[in-house]
Amino acid sequence: MQFTLEFVLFVIFGLGAIATAVLMITRKNPIMSAIFLVVNFFTVAVIYLLLKAQFIAIIQVLVYMGAIMVLFLFVIMLLNLQDEKKLSEQFTYKKITAVLLSILLAMLLGTTFWFGFSGKYLRLADTAEKLGTAESLGKLLFTVYSFPVIAAGMLLLAGIVGAVVLAKKKFD
């Protein structure tokens, strides 16, 4: 209806997300691409806020930008990849085919979304603001989804043990 602030923010941060993603996959230095991935996660967090999902946005900043990216940067620094020639990236017909097929995938998904959902859901639901709070999601997580929460905890425990075992120096 109006030329709203929401639209302006969506355009700025959506284009920012796409630009940082493209920059991420084109950098030669892994540290630069990790930093661009952090910026990309930040723009995605802003898009979650535009969708009124506050809890998910905060979790995105804490978990992805805080924990996972620190892990990535830590591993990159640990491995000390000074020899970039070993990772030579040359153009072959395989890679060109892969890019073309990925563009085809994007167009396929885009046309499906465009013709499948155009004009059906024009605005956010009235309850969207209440749905995204930590209160409502926490209520659901501890009642309806209590078993999946326990399963996710077990998964994280298995992940910790597996990571320690895999990264150990020698099996005694």
């Binding site: 109006q2 639209f7 969506f10 979304f113 959902f117 155009s118 004009g119 859901y121 605005r123």
Partner: peptide, 14 residues
């Protein structure tokens, strides 16, 4: 106005 298409197409591109 931003309806659901814009977000879905952004996710498809990413």
């Amino acid at each position: 106005m931003i309806d659901i298409n814009f977000y879905l197409i952004l996710s498809a591109i990413l």
